[in-house]
Nucleic acid binder design. Structure first.
Length: 564
RNA sequence: CGGGGUGUGGCUCAGCCCGGUUAGAGCGCCUGCCUUGGGCGCAGGAGGCCGGAGGUUCGAAUCCUCUCACCCCGACCA
């Protein structure tokens, strides 16, 4: 492509709306433009990079037996009502004129097709995938293409007869994902994750570490344990028992509302303080007992409760139920509540907690003796430095961007959408499903997050919009014009993807800046300076290293470099 | 949805508190000249109902009310 004819609107100044490197660079390099919040147009260069990513994904999906198809973005609303996902908050965008919605993902459509055409165990297994635009009713799009209302995803769906077969398909996808991200040149890691609103029995996320990430992950630098904070555990000890259970004692604690106040006031070690969080779960009161310094993890709570609606209880409601205000609630003599507690409290005694009477706490609580805990769960968020659950080395906590997510869905959609097959005995059985997503824009954005410098993007060959950026330093020089045109033609013949800066009215400095910004792996520079000696220059974008080669050998040298 | 911020030429912004010539700068763009190894120089030029609606006023980019859009933090998040 000749830059003199190309649409590559580069920007010298940083657009005001962009805050993270990938967003700034994708705008500055003329890869895309925003149309409205969370919606972008992909311009020629950006689209080429995305197509490179899509093709890598496609090749690896095909390699595990995936069959590509294309599904409708417009879906009947009723299908989503049937699956139960129409009412998920901030999920589905709908069309005003008809009872249609824009598909945010495609389990429902896949299920619809499968329910009609998968009839026998002989039809299984299947891997179906699509690479296409999806929509989400995103409350707050942000960080460029990392969280948009419209985005391209590869979504794959596996259909199996058994959980064992699902495991095989799941593992195949995990391996394919490793190959995909490795080929893209992205440094990633894999974490155990919560299956969230997708439902299902197991999932892993493919992550890159990034300050801009919206996920938080726990990582063990020693043994490699990695988990999303939604599910991460640690080897932090239980509270345990003190020598002797003393009799209960009520303590006057005027105006003490928080755990910090309480530690200050009683001059006690916070390890004996239990805090009470009061929720309504499916309309009924629920007391959650945690260690005073621990944070409730709502993802874990959701998992523990097995779904349903929960929300913290309001102050008036609380007073009516307990006769006390927040900060004075505790598990002893609390009527009408289901009580659950964090695992760390199992069997604990010698605790201090609220007395269900304003300005009073109770000491010497023995949970086994003085309260009835309905169940213990892992409910706390782990913190940096806690011992790894596998090897006890201190855990590290970092933000991360989710590139891909693989789920064992099981029968969630088979049940609601009635997807069954007949087994060898003629018995109807639910199809066991898996789903496997990759955000295409995120591949490009994450790559850029990991590969840029002050001058611009640094592409590798696999995702670069073009392999080579050919720069004619001065098109008004006859020699340069002839030589650079010759190299360009030869590169085209050699099927090298080349972007040729043949602009006559642009100064050399401008061209070099543009080339660094666009970031193709190799720059071939043709100027009078080199041509005097029959030479052209090849610059490696990543290192800045330059080599001089003979004009006639320019193309073969580039081929050598590209073959590395 | 809560909190904060911003809307002025294609881009980045000044002007707004404290109302008053014809609304400015840099970059980009057009024309000509010049230059040609790191966003080059000189000269000339085009381009804006100051997000929108209403109001206050002799007079509004500027003050008030409403509204829309976008960004950031939070909530939420497959």
């Amino acid at each position: 492509m000749r830059l003199s004819k190309a649409f590559v609107p580069t920007l010298k100044e940083v657009p005001a709306d962009a805050t993270i490197p990938s967003h700034k660079l994708m705008l500055r390099a003329g890869f895309m433009r925003q149309l409205t919040s969370g919606v972008y147009s992909y311009l020629p260069l950006g689209y080429r990079a995305m197509m490179k990513a899509m093709n890598i994904v496609r090749e690896e999906m095909n390699a595990i037996g995936g069959q590509e198809l294309l599904l409708p973005a417009l879906n009947p609303e009723s299908l989503w009502v049937q699956s139960g996902r129409r009412t998920i908050p901030n999920f589905i965008l709908s069309i005003k004129e008809r009872d249609l919605v824009l598909a945010p993902t495609h389990e429902e459509v896949i299920g619809y097709i499968a329910s009609m055409h998968i009839q026998s165990y002989k039809d299984l297994p299947q891997i179906w995938y699509q690479i296409q635009t999806k929509f989400r009713n995103e409350p707050r799009p942000r960080s460029g293409v990392l969280r948009g209302r419209q985005f391209i995803m590869k979504d794959a769906y596996s259909l199996d007869r058994s959980w064992e077969d699902l495991d095989k398909n799941y593992d195949l996808h995990a391996e394919a994902y490793k190959k995909i991200f490795t080929r893209c040149g992205i440094k990633f890691f894999i974490v155990g994750a919560s299956s969230g609103a997708m439902g299902g029995t197991g999932s892993q996320e493919f992550m890159i570490e990034s300050e801009s990430g919206e996920d938080t992950t726990a990582l063990c630098p020693t043994c490699g344990y990695a988990a999303n904070l939604e599910v991460a555990t640690s080897n932090i000890p239980k509270v345990g028992r003190v020598e002797k259970s003393e009799p209960l004692k009520e303590i006057h604690t005027p105006n003490i509302k928080t755990i910090t106040d309480l530690v200050e006031f009683l001059k006690v070690d916070p390890s004996r303080l239990a805090k009470s969080l009061v929720y309504r779960y499916n309309g009924k009161p629920l007391l959650i007992l945690m260690m005073g310094n621990d944070q409730l993890n709502e993802s874990k709570l959701t998992a523990a409760l097995g779904g349903g609606d929960f929300a913290p209880i309001g102050p008036e409601d609380l007073l009516a139920l307990t006769g006390a205000d927040g900060g004075s609630i505790g598990p002893v003599n609390l009527k009408g509540f289901r009580i659950i507690a964090d695992n760390r409290l199992e069997g604990a005694n010698g605790l201090i907690s609220g007395a269900n009477r304003n300005d009073y706490h109770i000491a010497n609580i023995d949970l086994e003796r003085d309260s009835k805990i309905d169940a213990f769960f892992d409910l706390r968020s782990i913190e940096a430095g806690e011992p790894c659950p596998q090897c006890t080395a201190p855990l590290k906590i970092s933000n991360a961007i989710e590139l891909g997510h693989i789920f064992k869905l099981g029968t969630k959609y088979s049940d609601s959408l009635n997807i069954t097959y007949l087994d060898e005995n003629g018995q109807a059985k639910p199809v066991i499903m898996g789903s496997y997503g990759i955000g295409i824009e995120r591949i490009v954005a994450c790559y850029i997050e990991q590969n840029n410098d002050k001058d611009g993007i640094i592409w590798n060959k696999s995702l670069a919009p073009y392999e080579v950026h050919l720069i004619a330093v001065n098109m008004n020089s006859k020699d340069v014009e002839t030589a650079s045109n010759q190299i360009y033609d030869r590169m085209i013949d050699a099927q090298i993807e080349v972007l040729f800066d043949d602009r006559a009215s642009v100064s050399p400095g401008f061209k070099f800046k543009d080339a660094d910004l666009l970031g193709m792996p190799f720059h071939v520079i043709v100027g009078d300076k080199g041509l005097k000696n029959g030479q052209v220059e090849i610059k490696r974008r990543r290192t800045g290293e330059r080599i001089l080669v003979k004009l006639e050998e320019a193309v073969s040298e580039v081929q050598k470099l590209l073959a590395e």
